[in-house]
Design a protein around this nucleic acid. Structure first.
Lengths: 190, 190, 190, 190
DNA sequence: AATGAATGAGAGTTCATTCAT
DNA sequence: AATGAATGAACTCTCATTCAT
């Protein structure tokens, strides 16, 4: 009995996910430029040729990884998008951020690797900013409603700190004291 | 009649500086792996071949950039290396850090590009850690002598914050409120 | 529908042989260091890149040529490896040597080109010695059992003579009187 | 007081010899293609540029080495060029050959390295043959006057043997039993 | 006469991408 | 849908040769 169209779709979807997963890990391990399509295909258990049946190019692959990666991130914070934050919610907010970080180290490795390459960034910068701005708005609102003098700057500093923690953590997950850092941040930035 | 040794030395020094400058900007812009010797040579206005009269390899080039870049950084902080810090000195310390940051944007772009590439890091990790550890020690000492519970974590968080500020600033020097950030950091981390 | 594994295997085997054949002739003609992958690829009618789908490196290519070339040589003499030789067998032995020589001129050209290049020799010396030593042992045994005073020296002289004949023959296959030489050698060295 | 033209000439001559000597040793060590002008200049203690004041090109250098090297060889045997040889003279002849071999290992290394490269040979082959033919004629005459059936073949076999001994000796001067070989050759080929 | 900075062609090698099957 | 052989451009690096001084 031949496969139904739905079955085909299912197989395709699973394979697509496998390729993205393989690509994420290879990119995170070796960096974007130093990763080859051959490595990714091998890791995904398929041929190089078939890769191009699923993704247009190496660049398309990394763009998909980044945009879909951020979508997951955004989903989690979606409910708080426009709301006001209590202190408990803000703590929860930070907690969530750290949980996502811990669960997606390869993604954040890739994120920082790509971030530092102006040419790739120029294509992704807008997309990312659009997705992340609700998150930043939430932070800024928090400081605004607490009556801080310069809530934008407060938000940028906190954002920078989270970037920095993220960068240090993915560079050395064993060595960086993530839990201690969380306490200190909550202590200072609430 | 040949040039005098002094003349040759002069030529070499000027060329060397031009190559390093070109390399710094290209690496900062594209990342290490995505930069080619051809790009750097073109930027420096010389032939590919001449590069190798001045530097052994692409790797040697980036190592030189980073070690000499950090040397400038280290020089400034040298006098405080082992001493204890008063609050004023700590503020001065942060001030200096920000001044250096403002004056060397391409260098710090390169620094982050390197930081996020595991393969390059593996060859540079030691060099960098050696140069930076006195700086981190100074910070840790500061928190230790102020009686903080976990000075190492305090230091790591401050380090992460400075990384993050640096990262955000070099990504968008006009948009990031560096002066405001400095005030907030001094306020919170002293 | 993809080619079957058997079809791929067929293609690979044919290409591999074509590359080895091209490489043998180019190396034999120009020597190892002066032969370029571009020349070999051109001779084989393929792109430079494809070479590396079949062989790891230029060095790998020449190693393969030499080991597989010697294997043919070794195969012929395998049965006599450890045995004692009668005069008839010794004559047969020389006969075989000359036949192999006549049928593989480019290989022996390569062999001498390699022999005279210290840097290549250093990577091949072991492989070659391992393959050739049974052959030399056979000769030495022959002289030992005939009661010669210094069988090792006899063997070395005979080996040198065969090298020299080989060298002269490959340099000028038409001009060198191979058959006459064989008679003289059998006459003097039996 | 300025140097006299004769003094200039003397300096030039000494320098020329130093360059040739340096080149011979570098070529013998690394092979022709793998030796660089930079290495040779360094070994000779002069600049690359000055090399080209003495020799047109790398190829010119090796041609000079080979032709002048053979001249030395030829000189020694000059007196016997056309004469008839007694057995004692023939032994002396072989003796001389071995002495020259022992005293000029780098030259013979270079000779064999170049011999195996058809393209270089094509330029040198004629020159060399012209210089060596008296030597071969002497050998052939020796066998002719002793009444051998095929003196040309005898000569070619002896020539091949001397080639082979030379090749084996320069490849491994410590290991090859040159003195034993000489005795065996005299024993068999007189 | 002498230097070594500088070039440019070409070396070995890698790899994203295409394509016949 | 699927393969991996094949290409070609670009990579890092080397070096004989030239040339301003």
């Amino acid at each position: 009995m031949p496969r139904t169209p739905a079955q085909f779709e299912e197989i395709r979807e699973a394979r697509r996910a496998a390729i993205l997963d393989a690509a994420l890990h290879v990119f995170a391990e070796k960096g974007y430029a130093s990763s080859s399509i051959a490595m990714i295909a091998k890791q995904a258990g398929i041929s190089k040729g078939l890769m191009y049946n699923y993704f247009d190019s190496k660049e398309g692959l990394v763009k998909t990884l980044l945009t879909e990666g951020f979508d997951i991130f955004v989903e989690v914070f979606d409910r708080d998008k426009d709301g006001e934050l209590t202190d408990e919610e803000f703590i929860f907010f930070l907690d969530q951020t750290f949980e996502i970080l811990k669960g997606n180290i390869p993604f954040w490795k890739l994120y920082f690797a790509i971030m530092s390459q102006a040419d790739v960034m120029s294509m992704l910068g807008e997309v990312m900013m659009e997705k992340l701005s609700p998150y930043f708005n939430t932070m800024q609102n928090y400081y605004a409603q607490k009556g801080y003098e310069n809530p934008m700057a407060q938000m940028r500093v906190l954002g920078a700190l989270l970037d920095g923690v993220c960068l240090n953590y993915v560079a050395d997950p064993e060595g960086f004291p993530l839990e201690d850092a969380k306490k200190i941040i909550i202590d200072k930035f609430i």
